[in-house]
Amino acid sequence: MGIFSRMSDIINSNINSMLDSAEDPQKMIRLIIQEMEDTLVEVRSSSARVLADRKAALRRSEQLQLEVDSWEQKARLALAKGREDLARAALQEKHVIEEELSLVDVELKALDEHIVHLGDEVAQLQHKLDDAKAKQQALIMRSQTVESRIKVKRQMQRDALDKAFSRFEHFERRMDTLESQLESMDIGRDVPPDLAAEIDALQEDERISDELQRLKNELSGQAGKAASEKA
Protein backbone atom coordinates (compact mmCIF):
# COMPACT_ATOMS: atom_id res chain seq x y z
CA MET A 1 0.00 0.00 0.00
CA GLY A 2 1.35 3.44 -0.98
CA ILE A 3 1.99 6.08 1.60
CA PHE A 4 -0.80 8.36 0.39
CA SER A 5 -3.34 5.54 0.18
CA ARG A 6 -2.42 4.51 3.72
CA MET A 7 -2.67 8.12 4.90
CA SER A 8 -6.11 8.44 3.30
CA ASP A 9 -7.24 5.24 5.03
CA ILE A 10 -6.04 6.58 8.37
CA ILE A 11 -7.72 9.96 7.92
CA ASN A 12 -11.01 8.32 6.90
CA SER A 13 -10.84 5.66 9.62
CA ASN A 14 -13.19 5.63 12.60
CA ILE A 15 -10.95 5.17 15.62
CA ASN A 16 -13.87 4.71 18.01
CA SER A 17 -15.30 1.89 15.89
CA MET A 18 -11.89 0.20 15.69
CA LEU A 19 -11.46 0.38 19.45
CA ASP A 20 -14.99 -0.89 20.13
CA SER A 21 -14.39 -3.97 17.99
CA ALA A 22 -10.92 -4.68 19.38
CA GLU A 23 -10.32 -7.41 21.94
CA ASP A 24 -7.54 -5.31 23.48
CA PRO A 25 -8.32 -1.58 22.95
CA GLN A 26 -5.07 -0.44 24.55
CA LYS A 27 -3.01 -2.62 22.22
CA MET A 28 -5.09 -1.47 19.25
CA ILE A 29 -4.64 2.23 20.08
CA ARG A 30 -0.89 1.72 20.44
CA LEU A 31 -0.78 0.13 16.98
CA ILE A 32 -2.91 2.94 15.51
CA ILE A 33 -0.66 5.62 17.00
CA GLN A 34 2.47 3.81 15.79
CA GLU A 35 1.01 3.55 12.28
CA MET A 36 0.08 7.24 12.29
CA GLU A 37 3.49 8.34 13.55
CA ASP A 38 5.28 6.20 10.96
CA THR A 39 3.02 7.53 8.19
CA LEU A 40 3.52 11.10 9.38
CA VAL A 41 7.30 10.68 9.22
CA GLU A 42 7.02 9.31 5.66
CA VAL A 43 4.64 12.08 4.59
CA ARG A 44 6.90 14.79 5.96
CA SER A 45 9.86 13.19 4.18
CA SER A 46 7.84 13.19 0.95
CA SER A 47 6.83 16.80 1.58
CA ALA A 48 10.48 17.74 1.92
CA ARG A 49 11.23 16.10 -1.42
CA VAL A 50 8.29 17.87 -3.07
CA LEU A 51 9.43 21.21 -1.67
CA ALA A 52 12.94 20.53 -2.97
CA ASP A 53 11.49 19.70 -6.41
CA ARG A 54 9.51 22.96 -6.36
CA LYS A 55 12.59 25.00 -5.52
CA ALA A 56 14.47 23.36 -8.39
CA ALA A 57 11.57 23.98 -10.77
CA LEU A 58 11.31 27.58 -9.63
CA ARG A 59 15.02 28.15 -10.26
CA ARG A 60 14.61 26.58 -13.72
CA SER A 61 11.63 28.83 -14.45
CA GLU A 62 13.56 31.95 -13.43
CA GLN A 63 16.51 30.89 -15.57
CA LEU A 64 14.31 30.23 -18.58
CA GLN A 65 12.59 33.60 -18.14
CA LEU A 66 15.99 35.29 -18.22
CA GLU A 67 16.80 33.44 -21.45
CA VAL A 68 13.46 34.48 -22.95
CA ASP A 69 14.18 38.11 -22.07
CA SER A 70 17.70 37.75 -23.49
CA TRP A 71 16.49 36.44 -26.87
CA GLU A 72 13.90 39.22 -26.93
CA GLN A 73 16.66 41.77 -26.54
CA LYS A 74 18.75 40.06 -29.21
CA ALA A 75 15.85 40.12 -31.66
CA ARG A 76 15.37 43.85 -31.01
CA LEU A 77 19.06 44.51 -31.53
CA ALA A 78 19.09 42.55 -34.82
CA LEU A 79 16.11 44.53 -36.12
CA ALA A 80 17.78 47.76 -35.11
CA LYS A 81 20.80 46.76 -37.15
CA GLY A 82 18.67 45.82 -40.14
CA ARG A 83 19.23 42.07 -39.69
CA GLU A 84 15.71 40.76 -39.86
CA ASP A 85 17.02 37.27 -40.47
CA LEU A 86 18.90 37.31 -37.19
CA ALA A 87 15.89 38.79 -35.46
CA ARG A 88 13.72 35.95 -36.81
CA ALA A 89 16.24 33.33 -35.60
CA ALA A 90 16.39 34.96 -32.15
CA LEU A 91 12.61 34.92 -31.92
CA GLN A 92 12.55 31.24 -32.85
CA GLU A 93 14.97 30.48 -30.02
CA LYS A 94 12.81 32.58 -27.73
CA HIS A 95 9.74 30.57 -28.78
CA VAL A 96 11.46 27.22 -27.99
CA ILE A 97 12.47 28.45 -24.56
CA GLU A 98 8.97 29.84 -23.89
CA GLU A 99 7.52 26.37 -24.59
CA GLU A 100 9.93 24.84 -22.08
CA LEU A 101 9.09 27.63 -19.64
CA SER A 102 5.40 26.88 -20.09
CA LEU A 103 6.01 23.21 -19.17
CA VAL A 104 8.02 24.23 -16.10
CA ASP A 105 5.22 26.60 -15.04
CA VAL A 106 2.70 23.75 -15.36
CA GLU A 107 5.00 21.60 -13.21
CA LEU A 108 5.26 24.41 -10.65
CA LYS A 109 1.48 24.76 -10.50
CA ALA A 110 1.07 21.02 -10.01
CA LEU A 111 3.72 21.03 -7.28
CA ASP A 112 2.01 23.95 -5.55
CA GLU A 113 -1.32 22.12 -5.61
CA HIS A 114 0.37 18.96 -4.37
CA ILE A 115 2.00 20.85 -1.51
CA VAL A 116 -1.29 22.45 -0.49
CA HIS A 117 -3.09 19.11 -0.63
CA LEU A 118 -0.27 17.44 1.25
CA GLY A 119 -0.34 20.14 3.90
CA ASP A 120 -4.08 19.64 4.39
CA GLU A 121 -3.68 15.88 4.74
CA VAL A 122 -0.75 16.26 7.13
CA ALA A 123 -2.88 18.60 9.26
CA GLN A 124 -5.73 16.06 9.25
CA LEU A 125 -3.33 13.25 10.06
CA GLN A 126 -1.84 15.27 12.93
CA HIS A 127 -5.36 15.94 14.21
CA LYS A 128 -6.14 12.22 14.05
CA LEU A 129 -2.88 11.47 15.84
CA ASP A 130 -3.66 13.98 18.59
CA ASP A 131 -7.15 12.47 18.92
CA ALA A 132 -5.71 8.96 19.14
CA LYS A 133 -3.22 10.01 21.80
CA ALA A 134 -6.03 11.66 23.78
CA LYS A 135 -8.03 8.44 23.55
CA GLN A 136 -4.94 6.48 24.63
CA GLN A 137 -4.60 8.69 27.71
CA ALA A 138 -8.30 8.26 28.44
CA LEU A 139 -7.95 4.49 28.10
CA ILE A 140 -4.96 4.50 30.44
CA MET A 141 -6.90 6.53 33.01
CA ARG A 142 -9.92 4.25 32.67
CA SER A 143 -7.70 1.21 33.03
CA GLN A 144 -6.06 2.65 36.14
CA THR A 145 -9.47 3.50 37.59
CA VAL A 146 -10.79 0.00 36.92
CA GLU A 147 -7.66 -1.59 38.38
CA SER A 148 -7.97 0.60 41.47
CA ARG A 149 -11.63 -0.32 41.86
CA ILE A 150 -10.83 -4.01 41.45
CA LYS A 151 -8.05 -3.70 44.02
CA VAL A 152 -10.38 -1.96 46.49
CA LYS A 153 -13.13 -4.50 45.86
CA ARG A 154 -10.74 -7.40 46.36
CA GLN A 155 -9.50 -5.79 49.57
CA MET A 156 -13.09 -5.35 50.75
CA GLN A 157 -13.82 -8.98 49.91
CA ARG A 158 -10.62 -10.00 51.70
CA ASP A 159 -11.67 -7.98 54.75
CA ALA A 160 -15.13 -9.54 54.66
CA LEU A 161 -13.60 -13.01 54.45
CA ASP A 162 -11.21 -12.22 57.29
CA LYS A 163 -14.12 -11.03 59.42
CA ALA A 164 -16.11 -14.16 58.56
CA PHE A 165 -13.16 -16.39 59.45
CA SER A 166 -12.67 -14.42 62.67
CA ARG A 167 -16.31 -14.86 63.63
CA PHE A 168 -16.10 -18.56 62.82
CA GLU A 169 -12.96 -18.98 64.93
CA HIS A 170 -14.64 -17.08 67.78
CA PHE A 171 -17.65 -19.39 67.51
CA GLU A 172 -15.36 -22.46 67.53
CA ARG A 173 -13.57 -21.18 70.63
CA ARG A 174 -16.92 -20.55 72.34
CA MET A 175 -18.09 -24.05 71.47
CA ASP A 176 -14.82 -25.48 72.81
CA THR A 177 -15.34 -23.54 76.04
CA LEU A 178 -18.92 -24.75 76.45
CA GLU A 179 -17.92 -28.33 75.72
CA SER A 180 -15.10 -28.07 78.27
CA GLN A 181 -17.50 -26.72 80.86
CA LEU A 182 -19.88 -29.56 80.18
CA GLU A 183 -17.09 -32.12 80.45
CA SER A 184 -15.90 -30.61 83.75
CA MET A 185 -19.36 -31.07 85.20
CA ASP A 186 -19.13 -34.78 84.50
CA ILE A 187 -15.75 -35.24 86.20
CA GLY A 188 -16.12 -37.83 89.07
CA ARG A 189 -19.31 -39.16 87.64
CA ASP A 190 -17.69 -41.82 85.54
CA VAL A 191 -18.41 -44.57 88.22
CA PRO A 192 -21.59 -46.44 87.44
CA PRO A 193 -24.49 -45.38 89.72
CA ASP A 194 -25.02 -48.95 91.12
CA LEU A 195 -21.36 -49.36 92.06
CA ALA A 196 -21.35 -46.00 93.80
CA ALA A 197 -24.46 -47.02 95.76
CA GLU A 198 -22.85 -50.29 96.82
CA ILE A 199 -19.73 -48.47 98.02
CA ASP A 200 -21.89 -46.02 99.94
CA ALA A 201 -23.80 -49.00 101.44
CA LEU A 202 -20.53 -50.59 102.55
CA GLN A 203 -19.46 -47.38 104.19
CA GLU A 204 -22.85 -47.11 105.89
CA ASP A 205 -22.69 -50.76 107.00
CA GLU A 206 -19.23 -50.21 108.48
CA ARG A 207 -20.48 -47.19 110.36
CA ILE A 208 -23.43 -49.14 111.74
CA SER A 209 -21.16 -52.05 112.71
CA ASP A 210 -18.92 -49.67 114.61
CA GLU A 211 -21.92 -48.16 116.30
CA LEU A 212 -23.25 -51.63 117.15
CA GLN A 213 -19.91 -52.69 118.60
CA ARG A 214 -19.82 -49.57 120.70
CA LEU A 215 -23.22 -50.37 122.12
CA LYS A 216 -22.13 -53.96 122.81
CA ASN A 217 -19.08 -52.76 124.60
CA GLU A 218 -21.13 -50.39 126.67
CA LEU A 219 -23.62 -53.09 127.58
CA SER A 220 -20.84 -55.52 128.41
CA GLY A 221 -19.26 -52.93 130.62
CA GLN A 222 -22.50 -52.27 132.44
CA ALA A 223 -23.08 -56.01 133.02
CA GLY A 224 -19.66 -56.48 134.51
CA LYS A 225 -20.15 -53.54 136.80
CA ALA A 226 -23.48 -54.94 138.02
CA ALA A 227 -21.97 -58.33 138.76
CA SER A 228 -19.22 -56.75 140.78
CA GLU A 229 -21.71 -54.79 142.87
CA LYS A 230 -23.69 -57.99 143.73
CA ALA A 231 -20.64 -59.82 144.83
Rank of each mutant, 00 (worst) to 15 (best):
D130R: 10
S61D: 03
V104S: 01
R76N: 14
I32S: 00
A134W: 07
K133W: 05
A78C: 09
K27F: 08
Q26I: 08
D85E: 10
V41W: 05
R76P: 02
E99H: 12
E113K: 07
R30P: 00
K109A: 14
R49F: 05
E121V: 04
V41Q: 14
R54I: 00
Q136S: 14
L101D: 04
M28G: 02
Q126A: 12
K27E: 11
S61L: 06
A75N: 01
L31S: 15
D53R: 03
Q136E: 13
L125A: 01
G119K: 07
R59Q: 13
R49S: 08
R49W: 04
R54P: 00
E121T: 07
L91I: 12
R83N: 15
S61A: 14
A134V: 11
D130C: 06
E93D: 09
W71N: 03
I29D: 01
A52N: 09
S70Q: 12
R76A: 15
L79Q: 14
A48W: 01
L86M: 10
I32H: 01
L101Y: 05
Q136V: 06
E72S: 14
A57M: 02
V104M: 05
K135M: 09
E107G: 05
A52Q: 07
H114A: 11
A56M: 12
V122Q: 05
R30D: 11
R49V: 03
T39H: 04
L66R: 15
L125D: 00
S46D: 14
D112I: 02
S46L: 10
Q126V: 12
R54H: 08
E100Y: 07
V41A: 15
A75P: 00
